[in-house]
Every structure is written in C-alpha cells, then in structure tokens.
C-alpha cells in the first residue's frame, strides 16, 4: 500500500476579490515526483506556498502524511501546524540564503535552533550534504561569493538538512543561466532516483517529463489537465495545454 504524502481536496484561495485557486484537488504518494506547470499567475506558486504554510488557504482540506493541516478551510492548532511544517521543505526561486552566515552556518542554523542537534552533528550533516552538492570546499564561503547555481545548491542542502519527508521546489531554476540550470536539475534528478517525494513547479518541460511520475497543468487557478507527464506533454488533450506546451517548442 502506497503511503499518501499529500492529499489536497478542493483548496481555494483569494487575494481580496481575486480568486487565485479554485477547487484544487490532487494527491501524491511516497517516493513519487509531481511536476506542476503553467503560465505565470496560474496559481502554482500560491498552491506551493499554501502547502508549505507561507499562505493560508480559504477553503478545502489538506493532509500531509496523514496529518490534517486544515479541513474546510479551518486550520489545525498552531503546534500541529508547526509539526506538519517540519515534514515539508521548500526551495525558493530566489534562494533566500542568509547573506550574513557562511555556507556552513546557513545549513546548520535550523538544525541547531529547530531540531536542537549538537554543533558536531549539525556540521557533520552539513558537510555530507555539501559533498553531495560538490561544494565541500565552499563551507567557509559567504553566499555573495557564490554563483547562482552554487547558491541554489546550498539552499537545497539547507532544506535537506532538516530531513523533510516532502521537498517542494518553486521554480528552482528560473533565476539561473541555462548552464547553471543543468546543475540544479541534476541534483533534483539524483534526489528523484533516491525516491525522495517531491513537488516541482517548473518551466523545464523536458526535465519534468524525464523525472516526474505525474504532472499537472494549471491555468487561472484551475487544474486544467493532469496525467502522466509523457502523455500530458506530448499529447495534451486540452486546448490551453496544447498551446502552452507548443509555446515551448518554438
């Protein structure tokens, strides 16, 4: 029996009078990768931000690994929200590293402050993650001394250091040059090979096709079409999906 890691039912969200998410439902099982594509303003980032608790949903129900974050728009107690928050990790488009901390401290700070790990334990974890990101020689550097691709790898290491059960990526390569993009995609691919449960919001269609088990196309706050990535990208049924996919071929 596959374990359900994310179960969203009828999520809705408005900013003022603007409805940005309508009745969004999907689920994600353990070890699977879901990619979400769609034009800017389609609500995909907002959806990610609701699941990672940066925004509050107005309605619907969301369960993370069987724990209910909100039901019919009513949120669980603050403590429960916090506990659920520890199951998820988020990698931002703009990295959001802490500029005044070294690379090492960027990765150890939350381990120590939130998970109460010892300094030695946190650093050991950080060094092993840095090695994996091929950044072992950058531990003492500051974010301003790194390239965009290196910064994004540090931010992935920072998220992984807390051992999240599900990792979310919000357009992780949109702020990067094409060459640097490849580095990040390789990292995500290797995580997928290790059966990390992930949700990736991306414009990299080929990449999404290659690594994800399921894909969703969103527009105007709706899930317009979903299915296995190869058929969604190669034989889209919906007219809007067709147009969107085609626009990337040109």
């Amino acid at each position: 029996m596959e374990e359900l890691m994310v179960k969203a039912e009828g999520i809705s969200k408005s900013f003022g009078s603007l409805e940005v998410l309508h009745d969004i439902s999907f689920s994600l099982t353990k070890g699977n990768v879901l990619s979400i594509i769609g034009p800017s303003g389609s609500g995909k980032s907002t959806l990610l931000r609701i699941i990672t608790q940066l925004e509050k949903a107005d309605g619907g129900t969301l369960e993370i690994k069987g724990c209910r974050l909100f039901e019919n728009g009513v949120y669980a107690k603050a403590e429960e929200q916090k506990r659920i928050g520890r199951l998820t990790g988020l990698v931002f488009q703009s990295f959001n590293l802490f500029p005044h901390f070294s690379v090492l401290r960027n990765i150890t700070e939350a381990q120590r402050a939130v998970l109460k790990r010892s300094k030695a334990e946190a650093e050991e974890k950080a060094y092993s993650l840095l090695k994996r990101m091929s950044l072992q020689d950058k531990a003492k550097s500051y974010p301003c001394e790194l390239s965009g691709g290196q910064m994004q790898r540090v931010s992935i290491a920072r998220a992984l250091a807390l051992d999240p059960e599900i990792l979310f990526f919000d357009e992780p390569t949109s702020a990067l040059d094409p060459e640097l993009t490849r580095d990040i995609l390789n990292v995500i691919r290797s995580l997928a090979e290790e059966k990390m449960t992930m949700v990736v919001v991306t414009h990299e269609m080929n990449f999404a096709k290659g690594i994800s088990d399921h894909a969703i196309f969103m527009e105007g706050g709706y899930i317009v079409e979903e299915g296995d990535p190869v058929s969604l990208f190669e034989h889209p049924q919906n007219k809007r999906t067709k147009e969107f996919v085609k626009s990337f071929d040109d």
Binding site: G85, V114, A159, L162
Partner: peptide, 11 residues
C-alpha cells in the same frame, strides 16, 4: 524572502 526562509525552516 528572508522572513519566508525563516518560516519554512521553522525558526
């Protein structure tokens, strides 16, 4: 983004 990173990391 600095506040958001802190929130997501659980500070």
């Amino acid at each position: 983004g600095q506040y958001e990173a802190c929130k997501v990391l659980g500070f």
